[in-house]
Design a binder for these strands. Sequence first.
DNA 1: TTGCGATCCCTTTTT
DNA 2: GGGATCGCAA
Length: 812
Amino acid sequence: MLQEEMPSPSELSGEAGELLKGLTPPQMQAVQATEGPLLVLAGAGSGKTRVITRRIAFLIHQGVPPWSILAVTFTNKAAAEMRERVLTVLGHDPKLTRGLTVTTFHSLCARLLRRYAEAANLKPEFSIYDSSDQATLAKRVIAELQLSTSNWPPRSVLSAISNAKNDLLDADEFAARAHDFYSRTVAKIYQGYAKALKLAGAVDFDGLLVLTAKLLQSNAEVRRECNERWRYLLIDEYQDTNHAQFVIASLIAGKNEEGHPPNICVVGDPDQAIYGWRGADITNILEFEKCYPGTQVITLGENFRSNAPILHAADQLIRNNQKRKHKDLFTSRKGGEHVEVTLTRDENHEAALVVDWLKSVKDERDDSPTSIAWREMAIFYRTNSLSRVMEDALRGAGVPYTIARGTAFYDREEVKNAVAYLRLVANPSDDVSLSRIVNTPTRGIGSTSFGKIEDYAAEHGTPVLHAMREAGQLLDVVGRGAAAIGKFVEMIDAWTGGGTFMGAQVSTSLADLVSRVIRESGLEAMYRTQAKASNSDADMERLDNLDELVSSARQFEMEFDAMADPAAETRNADGLARPNDQTPPLLAMLRAYLESIALVADADAVDPAQGAVTLMTLHAAKGLEFKAVAIIGLEEGQLPHSRARESQEQLEEERRLCFVGITRAMRRLHMTSSRYRTMRGIPERTIPSRFLDELPRESVRFSNQADATSGLEDFIARGEGGSGGGGGGQRYEPEGEFAAKDSKRAKLAWSSSSGTPKNAAFPVGAIVRHPQFGEGEVVSISAGVNARATIRFRGVGTKTLVLEYARLTRVK
DNA sequence: TTGCGATCCCTTTTT
DNA sequence: GGGATCGCAA
């Protein structure tokens, strides 16, 4: 039946030539080299996404059935975008992309594991555990083994387990290789952890990959089906794939059989490899050619994104990496603003400066044809902890912003609780979710009775919920506890129809189920009571978030059908049979919904439509671009991170991270380094990042705005441990603090202050014009390189502006 | 059993 | 600064 839907060339808009329009020769080559292994080395900003999109469209245009194409991207967002763009190129005919699979490794694996659950020795309702679930489970296992969590911190044990998994070692294989005390203990924990996961019917992030790889390795039938289904494989960000992903990719691509090398196309840039710490193996890309003899290699070097100084800065920086295959980055664009680098006093000063800079960039109309909108700006940082001060400053200045934290919503306590109920509904064995909500809201199942049940469950190797059903008879749980437990079990059964998901009392829609769970579990009432008692906005917001969760379920429901991943369902001409399709629709939808929640990435939250400045980590910035970019915290210990300075490899990865950040910028780039930074509540003196020294002088304008009286004295004298306490972020009182009284302190390669002091040009009483606020009168002005003027604007009110960026013109 | 307060520990990056 | 945990009081 699907054969009939195969696009005939006449249905395609335009000729193949259309698909190649506007491409450079190497880009065109990459689009057209459809057969056999292909490695595309795509430099930053070289039009990689464009090439991938056109390539998929080209394949379809050549008559390749869309369902035989599998494209793997790094984030869901990238996948959705790619699908959309392919559709656009093909003239918005949904029929043409029907069955096309564009997804992430993790989603793909989750799909495959559900589909082949039996072969993978899993229950199809398995839960996906995120890192906090993993930690909960690991803690329990460590305790059961009578080990202390201080000697065996769950997080580091988990990271050892994660490394093992990335190398495709299961618990027993790992144990067999463990010889020293440490790894033997880790092996024990790993084995206990694996057992606990199994019992809970749960799979962790790494597990999705491992289990899929093992499934494909061990099961010829599954492998055959995948090979037949997907004939064209395309993998983006290949430099960041780990060993497990490599194995999955090569198994799906198939072996070099019958003299036909697989049609596998990988795209990546070794200079942007930033996930070594989580097992990404850069040799995957460097040795792709060895792995696939006859590989065609195409290099895309021309940059279409950044202006010349930005690109030059990036290029010079990355040249400092020793372990690197040099690739020329070039652009034919001329001109463009210098990269700005500013040394600030502390994080508040830094934040204020960045805010001012963003404002000035937004208002800038004199020197550039168009101003840059908020949504085209971004602020990057190495660690999440740097966002807080920045947020305060943005909020204080009334600049709209969003943080790219995909999981932020689902990380909220109230949402996590509701989701835990849902996970238990979908998977009654999910002990981690159960223990989270069994007494939330409090319903008289305290740790004593629940502990007994857990012990009983552990002893009998049964899921805890199952043990609860028998608690009444079997345990010495006294009256009150037993009744509460009985009620809890009944409540769950009512939602699931006793596990059948059938019957009149079961919800017919996902949104209804979610809203019922929130109401009947008592979560809503609990938060309502809390909100009334405290009368705080934060508590009111919890209720809103629960409503929002219902909406998200409703939206998911609407898109679920149309969402067309017939991908996983569609069969090819050979008619791949799909095993057990007996799943009740509500349950199937719930599983898919929970899966989508579990696999959101930070970068998924980047939404330019919001009209706001985007804040994110450098890692999350990969693959994106913005007209104006600020990167903060360029300090030793922060940007080459202190934990990453031990080895040359790690240092080079930090440099690549910096490189990724720089190359996101199209027109304007500003990097800041703060002389003092508050770490764990203590202000610490910092050293500017070595990466700043590696930037080319001719493309960069350095400015030292930190030197004056040292800063620390003032900082401590103000009696506020950083964080802008009372005074608040950007409303920094400059009063001479930045005046260059003590120029001896100016060190390093910092030219002290750029330009001449501007304050002389705007004496108190002068009438000035601001591009946004209009005319105003100077009320006061401070001295120094970071001079600010307080100006009373007509109708707008009084503003304090940094002269350096305010773009004031004097009227009178 | 529950709720609150003190204390301790921490800190990279993420699917 | 802040989150998690633990202990103690009601």
